[in-house]
């Protein structure tokens, strides 16, 4: 399995993302001018300030040549994970619903937050348990998730809210405490917290690794066949194979 991490001018978390990806498989950097994704099984759009975040966070990056390929990849069902600025880019590109607005506090927020796993049956959360709490840091100025009420209701109804800030820990004023959302098909996922900064005991929590383990488990399951891919936990897959 190979993961690709996109590097834009102004990205700054791509090396941590690369390192996190390498805990679960092979990984390489993709350059913003690349027009093909070199056969990767999943793409990570990392945090940072792509193209200086000029105009609006993510507004310019969405026109990068690589984003054409990422869009095609996503439309064909490929897994795309957007972290922080990557989340902003995916929203601007229309691959995810909603938008990220400046934090209500108008301040840069950098702290560890608890996230509640709302759905554990998606490619990005299948290594988690439903309701599990993950401790992962946030660090951003523009992280207030917004979508019109009608869209928020749709997201909830479709189970597209995969992660929520734990009660009382919403760091930015995101509507309905949303920390991470997926598209309807659940193959594109964006979140403001940084799982790639929480994969080593040296920095405290290793809960972020669950997101990368989930992606790896999903890609592996797809290899074994669509039945395994649809299954949630590894034990269910084994059970089905034996039967």
């Amino acid at each position: 399995m190979k993961l690709g991490v996109v590097r834009f001018p102004g990205s700054c978390d791509e090396l941590d993302a690369l390192r996190a990806c390498r805990l679960v498989g092979d990984a390489e950097l993709l350059w913003h001018r690349d027009r093909d994704l070199r056969g990767v099984d999943a793409v990570v759009i990392p945090g940072g300030f792509s193209y200086g975040d000029y105009l609006r966070a993510g507004a310019i990056a969405r026109f990068a040549p690589v984003m054409g390929a990422v869009g095609e990849f996503a439309r064909s069902g490929g897994l795309v994970l957007g972290i922080c600025n990557g989340f902003q880019v995916l929203c601007e590109a229309g691959l995810l619903p909603g938008a990220l607005l400046p934090n209500l506090s108008l301040r840069f927020v950098c702290r560890q937050v608890d996230l509640v796993v709302e759905r554990a049956d998606t490619p990005f959360t299948r290594a988690c348990d439903p309701g599990e709490v993950l401790s992962i840091p946030v660090k951003h100025t523009t992280g207030r998730y917004y979508a019109p009420e009608r869209i928020l209701d749709e997201l909830e109804a479709n189970g597209q809210v995969l992660l929520r800030y734990a009660e009382g820990q919403n760091p930015n004023g995101s509507l309905r405490d949303i920390a991470g959302v997926a598209n309807e098909r659940k193959n594109v996922f964006g979140l403001m917290p940084h799982p790639e900064h929480a994969v080593d005991p040296l920095t405290g929590s290793t809960d972020g690794a669950r997101i990368f383990e989930s992606i790896a488990a999903h890609v592996e399951a797809l290899r074994r066949g669509p039945l395994a891919a649809a299954g949630g936990s590894a034990s269910a897959v084994v059970g089905r194979g034996a039967a």
């Binding site: 105009l55 507004a59 938008a99 979508a147």
Partner: peptide
């Protein structure tokens, strides 16, 4: 398409 985000 670029200068504004019509959603917000």
């Amino acid at each position: 398409r670029l200068l504004a985000n019509p959603l917000i």
